[in-house]
Every structure is written in C-alpha cells, then in structure tokens.
C-alpha cells in the first residue's frame, strides 16, 4: 500500500505491505536504523517505539497500526527522552549500546506516566527490555537520576 507515516514529527510517503511490521518499515523502507531488531516476537524490547505516546514493540505491530498516528523513535525528541539521554550519559550506562534505543524509549514511556517511579515501578516498566551486556543496575540508577534532573529543572 502507499501511505504516509508520521515519525518524529515528519511525514514519510512510503509504499509497503500493510502487514509489514513497523520495525521493518522504519528501518528498511524509511531508513531510520536507530530502532533495533532483537527477537521479532516482542520478547526483548530492542524495537521499542512510541505510537501516540503508547509503548509498542514495533517488530510485532503492522504498518497499518501506525497510520494516522504520531510515532516517536530513538531519533526523535521529547522532554523526558532528552533528560534520560543526559542521565544515561552521566551514568555511563551503555556497554555495546544495541538495546539502549529500546531501553531509552521504554524509560521515556515510564516517565511520561509516572513522574517519580520507585525501584519496583522501574522493574515492572523495564522488564520487557533485555540487555545482554547487563546494564540493568545502571539503567535503574539513570532513571532515578533523570527524575532528579527533571525536578531540579522544575525548581
């Protein structure tokens, strides 16, 4: 099908089968490669994106699901994503870095819906994202730091 997909505020005219998962539309058709393939079955979260603000595993949702909606990928921007990036860098979080696009998007979704998450909230929100390098302790710390950074900014 020929359609338009709005990603990070920009409209992209594309031609792709409507059942093609958003992950592959974004990576192979549009060419934004920050969103990663990890499992293809919504198990690892490397492909996480936001669709109208909702956290979605893009490997398992078809193109048709994204049409007419606002999609945010790791290449995009939002207040919380920017602050999380800062916290990620401050905490020297990534090792290989591959899963971190998905981790940052999942953390963005968490902070959009919970301004002050507890450790348990973070565990629940982030357990859909696998990091094989094992950066979980740093991710958790960075999310807490992001909250602090944000609160400082609001003072």
């Amino acid at each position: 099908m020929i359609t338009t997909l709005k990603i990070n505020g920009k409209n992209h005219q594309i031609e792709a089968p409507e059942e093609m998962p958003l992950l592959w539309v974004i990576r192979d058709i549009i060419g934004l490669t920050g969103t990663k393939f990890g499992c293809g079955v919504a198990q690892c979260g490397a492909c996480s994106i936001l669709v109208d603000g909702i956290l979605v595993k893009s490997c398992s949702m078809p193109l048709s699901f994204g049409i007419g909606k606002e999609i945010t990928t790791i290449e995009g921007a939002s207040g919380n994503l920017e602050i999380l990036r800062e916290a990620w860098q401050e905490g020297n979080v990534p090792q290989c870095g591959y899963c971190q696009s998905g981790q940052l998007i999942a953390a963005t979704f968490l902070l959009e819906n919970n301004a002050n998450p507890t450790d348990e909230d973070i565990d629940n929100a982030m357990s859909g994202n696998i990091c094989r390098c094992g950066t979980y302790p740093r991710i958790k710390k960075a999310i807490h730091s992001a909250v602090k950074l944000k609160n400082q900014g609001n003072e």
């Binding site: 490669t33 920050g34 990663k36 393939f37 990036r85 860098q89 971190q100």
Partner: peptide
C-alpha cells in the same frame, strides 16, 4: 560513543 549510543546513531552491522 555515548552520544551515538543514546541517539540511535551508532552504526551496527545491521
């Protein structure tokens, strides 16, 4: 590589 890792701009094989 922190900036690339946190902006989706690091180029992996894929």
């Amino acid at each position: 590589d922190l900036k690339d890792f946190t902006h989706g701009t690091a180029k992996y094989g894929m």
